[in-house]
Amino acid sequence: MTAALELAVARQIGEFNLDVALTVESGMSVLFGPSGAGKSLTLALIAGLIRPDSGTITINGHVVTDCARRTYVSTQKRRIGMVFQDGLLLPHRSVIDNVALAVRQTRGRRARRAVARSWLERVGAEGLADRRPGSLSGGQRQRVALARGLAGDPALVLLDEPLSALDAEVRRELRKLIRGVIISSSVPAVLVTHDAEEAEELGDVIIGYNRGRVTGARVVDRPVCPGPASGAPESTGRA
């Protein structure tokens, strides 16, 4: 089975040096470590928003970044979904328009809205379809952001501290939602967090980060979950 993500890159920004290599087969991999360790930078490199100084990144068997061969696939073509810490929903469009914008595998406005609506249902936000992002609470906003990240049928979902800006209660509620929706949709995911509890609850594999290096990886013991996902999820990280 092709790995969802293979990455071995290095990047220097000012005095900070990132040099990491990791592989994600399927399921949810969590990048866990203190702030400033380079986790979000890694996501930005995977997304193609920043270029590494050296190394390669492969998503689903396609080489999207290869510094030696000067190959850089643009972010748009990488078939990823991204969920940001503060949502970043377009404030001037309604919730359903925001999610519909991400639907790229379907043509036609009505079809796209239908896809968007079904995703909003899956995250429990179908009642918010015609609201504006500015009128949503933090938790509601992140539900919509999750729907938007998944609506485009991505090969890989990247979540950059999606719950860090929310308060504890909402965070606990949404953790279950994130885990549930992503696992049931069988999309491999990489999630960044500095919260240990969150890492334990969400990750199939936890990859430790510190000061720009991977410090280790371990598989989380989990009861086998019923569902379309085949076998136990696997992931390895090499320091």
């Binding site: 928003l49 643009s74 972010t75 748009q76 073509k77 979904g81 991204m82 970043l88 991400a102 990247l158």
Partner: peptide
């Protein structure tokens, strides 16, 4: 950046 991640040209 979010829009690029969504695949918009």
């Amino acid at each position: 950046q979010a829009a690029r991640a969504m695949g918009l040209p």
